[in-house]
């Protein structure tokens, strides 16, 4: 008895309302891939013949609000779509131009913390990320404000490389490749005995 409703994967609306969200192009692609039968039903006639004209004409045929208003609506929707597209582009550009900063700092002798900042642009839930790191590395992990009053994830322990990998994977999953990552390693590693400052430190400990 209950209906199962398909929701668009792009704009979350039932597909028939996609045209009002300004993301129509992407919605169409999604629908075609995932529910081709629905796609046929909604946009099927547009494929045949001249795209634009038949689309408008079809809407006009089964709409009752009159030619003038329909045209205006169509125009408004187009404008909305361009606006939305521009916004998306801007956001993408912003995402690509921003960078993630991963910092390793020394606490006491052999203790380190890793702080990650600059993630807020990518719509990452910081608290959730902190929780995943905490359980993944079995350490303490929290969200706190850094010197610039921005949120950052602070992880207790020397997990710089793992974190780097994880974040890269996470961003790629979101479809963002080649996001700049800045690694600041303010503490020297114990592993490298060579190097100007590294050697004396290790010697000292022995």
């Amino acid at each position: 008895m209950l209906q199962e409703v398909v929701y668009c994967g792009v704009c979350t609306f039932p597909p028939e309302y996609c045209e009002f969200t300004g993301k129509l192009k992407r919605c169409k692609v999604w629908l075609k891939e995932n529910h081709s039968d629905l796609y046929e039903k909604l946009y099927g006639d547009e494929e045949v013949g001249d795209k634009e004209v038949s689309g408008v004409a079809k809407n006009l045929a089964d709409s009752s609000i009159g030619e003038e208003r329909e045209e205006k609506l169509e125009k408004d929707l187009k404008r909305l779509q361009t606006k939305q597209e521009n916004r998306e582009q801007r956001e993408l550009a912003k995402k690509l131009s921003s960078k993630v900063v991963i910092k390793r700092e020394a606490r006491t002798k052999r203790k380190f913390i890793v702080a990650i900042s600059g993630l807020e642009v990518f719509e990452v839930d910081m608290k959730k990320l902190a929780k995943t790191f905490a359980s993944k590395f079995a350490t303490g992990c929290s969200v706190s404000k850094n010197a610039e009053k921005k949120d950052e994830v602070v992880i207790q322990g020397d997990v710089l490389e793992e974190v780097q990998k994880h974040i890269k994977g996470m961003l790629e999953e979101k479809g963002l490749k080649d996001v700049k990552m800045e690694i600041i390693d303010s503490a020297k590693k114990k592993k490298q005995p060579e190097g100007a400052e590294g050697a004396p430190a290790t010697n000292g400990k022995k």
């Binding site: 008895m1 209950l2 209906q3 199962e4 409703v5 039932p14 809407n59 709409s63 009752s64 609000i65 208003r69 329909e70 609506l73």
Partner: peptide, 16 residues
């Protein structure tokens, strides 16, 4: 509502 729309009082608006 989407699961069982028949059960609710409904009105309809125009396309505009």
């Amino acid at each position: 509502i989407h699961k069982y729309p028949q059960a609710f009082p409904t009105i309809q608006v125009d396309r505009g």
